[in-house]
């Protein structure tokens, strides 16, 4: 399924514009007023960076943790370049059997190369079918 050799593997850089209509739709879906600000968890929708060998979702996987750090506010209308990377993969045994933890990091820069945000997700896959 997911092996340790994947650690360090990166996606291509994806360039996206933070479109007002997408931010509005996100705000409406999450139940917050739409204003000139991008809701902080909007960067969780930047899902288009795919990493070779990491096919998500895996059946039964769940989202364990999420961290998002901004070095400045993300603005509507600006263009961001982001990249995803496999930061870590490790197994743990619990009462439900073997589980695989996948740590994915997404880093976003603006067009001047300034860091805007970094985000890290821990995905937990139940290890019914072995790696």
């Amino acid at each position: 399924m997911l092996r340790k050799e994947l650690i360090g593997r990166e996606s291509e850089s994806i360039v996206v514009k933070i479109k007002p209509e997408e931010v509005r739709r996100f705000a409406e879906a999450t139940g917050v007023p739409y204003n000139d600000r991008v809701p902080p968890t909007f960067v969780g929708t930047l899902l288009h960076a795919s990493i070779d060998g990491v096919e998500l979702p895996i059946v039964g996987m769940i989202h364990g943790e999420q961290k998002i750090t901004y070095s400045r506010q993300l603005r509507i209308g600006e263009t961001i370049s982001y990249k995803k990377r496999v930061k870590d993969i490790y197994d743990r045994s619990g009462k439900l059997g073997k589980m695989t933890f996948i740590v994915l990091e997404t880093i976003g820069y603006d067009l001047t190369g300034e860091l805007v945000f970094s985000s890290s997700s821990i995905i937990i896959a139940q290890g019914k079918e072995d790696a």
Binding site: T30, V32, P40, S71
Partner: peptide, 19 residues
């Protein structure tokens, strides 16, 4: 995040949120 932004309004930003 919405709980936080409702509270902070225009006076600040969420610079980090870990859950």
């Amino acid at each position: 995040a919405a709980m936080l932004t409702d509270w902070i309004g225009d006076e600040g930003i969420i610079s980090k949120i870990d859950v």
